[in-house]
């Protein structure tokens, strides 16, 4: 086995891929490749013959890597989801962080650990960013819907903005729903009625 571990990062998003590569490069001296185009993924991975493959758990193309575990030819190196029976904490930590790792069978856990530690830290950061982004996006969308619902009420019932909002809030409380949900229902209904 060559001294340098070769690692493939499967990641369609270029910026994310660069961030992963950077943090792996800080963690050690590795031979790093990025695959961003998933067409023929299993074939590309086989051609590069890596020791470790890292892929986002949320990436559906991960299933394409599963067929590598079936490889049986003399030149193929079986790749398995990394698991060390004596300590599955590493795999568990990876799954919690949202990264899956395929590792060549027989590779010593201590050689993989720094790779995984760096990947896990990076993916935790991605998860936080993803959650923040989604929360912000949802809040923004909800704000828009509430504004439209307020507008509809102001027009239909001749209310001021504060009164319209108070009406929405009361309806939400009476129905045990969120203001955004009541607003969405109102906007949808108004759309149907024309």
């Amino acid at each position: 086995m060559p001294d340098k571990l070769s690692i493939i990062v499967v990641e369609p998003d270029r910026d994310r891929a660069m961030l992963i590569v950077d943090s792996l490069a800080e963690a050690g001296d590795y031979d790093l490749h990025v695959i961003s185009e998933v067409t023929g993924l299993a074939r590309k991975v086989t051609a590069l013959n890596p020791d470790v493959v890292l892929v986002d758990i949320a990436n559906p193309s991960r299933d394409m890597l599963e067929e590598l575990t079936l490889a049986s030819g003399p030149l193929d190196r079986p790749v398995a989801m990394f698991v060390d029976q004596s300590d599955d904490g590493l795999t568990r930590a990876a799954i919690e962080a949202g990264v899956s790792a395929y590792v060549v069978a027989g590779l010593k856990p201590e050689r993989v650990k720094p790779v995984m530690d760096a990947a896990v830290a990076r993916f935790h950061m991605f998860q936080r960013m993803r959650t923040e982004l989604e929360t912000t996006k949802r809040a923004l969308e909800e704000r828009k819907v509430i504004d439209r619902a307020k507008g509809l009420l102001m027009k239909a019932r001749g209310l001021g903005e504060d009164e319209a909002y108070a009406l929405l809030r009361k309806a939400a409380m009476d129905q045990g729903k969120r203001v955004a949900d009541v607003a969405q229902a109102l906007v949808t209904t108004a759309g149907l009625l024309g």
Binding site: N59, R62, I95
Partner: peptide, 15 residues
Amino acid sequence: APSWSSLRDMLVFGR
């Protein structure tokens, strides 16, 4: 779940 392999791992690791 996003993929079969992920779902299998969620099961194996108790998620």
